[in-house]
Design a protein around this nucleic acid. Structure first.
Lengths: 118, 118
DNA sequence: TCCTTAGTTCAAAAGTTATTGAACAATTGG
DNA sequence: CCAATTGTTCAATAACTTTTGAACTAAGGA
């Protein structure tokens, strides 16, 4: 349960592109980007895939260097590795997210929102 | 032998990303981008894959809307659909190509160059 | 016409990725 | 301690993707 992440310079372009080429993973990344800075746990993505399947896709994102997963209690807190991606591939993440937002064939990002604020 | 191409607005982001996520296809696109405006025939890519395999990868690129293939005599002239890609996904192609150029793990673009000028 | 060149198609094999359910940890609240 | 919550792992299967060689088509030149 070591949750290995590649270092910044180990991040590979073809792997990142292939990983983002899956609609489920692209949706996860878009959602993370829309909540930037807020670490999310896996349950936020349960409308995108089954629990088991999510585990698989989140591992792919982590192994590709797109996300970071931190174990906190019984949860995994997931964040976008924006700094690392921007350093390694300037502009790439932004143009992918903008492209996704502009692609009418993709479902709108931002799942059902209920913030616990009390 | 109709060589179908998607229209600009049929180009799908996940499909483009998945198609560019293959190292052989990424190399083809980089080479096309380095020769922008010059239509190339398939033989230019024979150092990247076998003839049959190239046919497969070039079809994938065409079907995704990344390239255009025109039949001219016994050749196919291949061009990058830069205008369409830029229109549909602004900045994406440029950041992918820049990212590829900056990825030391990828082979340098630009295969053996001998221009027939006489 | 015959030959070469350029590329495609087909079917098979190999390899990879995605999806599933059942069983398993680990943490936390009662 | 017990139960619930959160997520992982495993093995199986399904579904794709890539690669290959042999056979093919189509155009162009001698």
């Amino acid at each position: 349960m070591s949750l290995p992440h590649p270092t910044t310079d180990q991040i590979s372009l073809p792997i990142v592109l292939a990983v983002l080429g899956d609609p489920t993973r692209l949706a996860i990344v878009r959602y993370l980007a829309s909540k930037e800075g807020v670490p999310l746990n896996c349950s936020k993505f349960l409308d995108l895939a089954s629990k088991t399947n999510l585990s698989y896709h989140l591992a792919k994102l982590r192994e590709a260097g797109v996300t970071r997963s931190e174990a906190v209690g019984t949860s995994r807190l997931i964040t976008l590795r924006r700094d690392d991606l921007d350093k390694r591939f300037p502009g790439l993440l932004d143009s992918v997210i903008a492209a996704a937002d502009g692609d009418k064939a993709l479902p709108a990002v931002g799942v059902s929102e209920v913030e616990v604020s009390a």
